[in-house]
Nucleic acid binder design. Sequence first.
DNA 1: TAGTCATTTAGACAAATATCTAAATACCCT
DNA 2: AGGGTATTTAGATATTTGTCTAAATGACTA
Lengths: 84, 84
Amino acid sequence: MNSLFKALNDPTRRSILELLREQPRTAGEIAEHFQFSKPTISHHLDLLRQADLVSSDKQGQFVTYTLNMTVMDELLGWLLQFKS
Amino acid sequence: MNSLFKALNDPTRRSILELLREQPRTAGEIAEHFQFSKPTISHHLDLLRQADLVSSDKQGQFVTYTLNMTVMDELLGWLLQFKS
DNA sequence: TAGTCATTTAGACAAATATCTAAATACCCT
DNA sequence: AGGGTATTTAGATATTTGTCTAAATGACTA
């Protein structure tokens, strides 16, 4: 739960999740959408992976990142505890 | 949205929310549940208030904190955007 | 009015975080 | 093998964060 909230506590990382909502993308494609350096984006992707919010798959030189919804469901459960 | 995720990104603050889920409590009652100093808890309560996750009401010397669900609903909406 | 209690404010400090540049790694192609 | 491309790792730095103690504020009570 800690790594999840930590990962979500950054606007760039939340934007990345919204990008991946549409479709999987490579690290480079993701980086193109932001003004930060590639190492910075790589670091954000690492935190998202640590939180299990995304998974990564290496194909040749490219690394494709995919949104992983299962952890979001956990957050949803935590939230719903307040709705009663 | 920033202040919301920021507020949620701390286990103590999330515990405070869970405490308040049961019933409103004064700052002192909340502080009793933790090992941190009262100023530290006061600071956490301040961040929760900034995120509009709680509201505070001063009655005499006591300040009662109450959970505020409306912002949680906003988070819920953000989450549900991924479920489709 | 003085003393006490509840809470917050102020200021300090160590740890965590977001960012960068430079370098390393890994893969592809000729 | 060598050069180019994609990505990550390493290391540095400024900012933010969580915590503390000491002091201030505000309210009750004798």
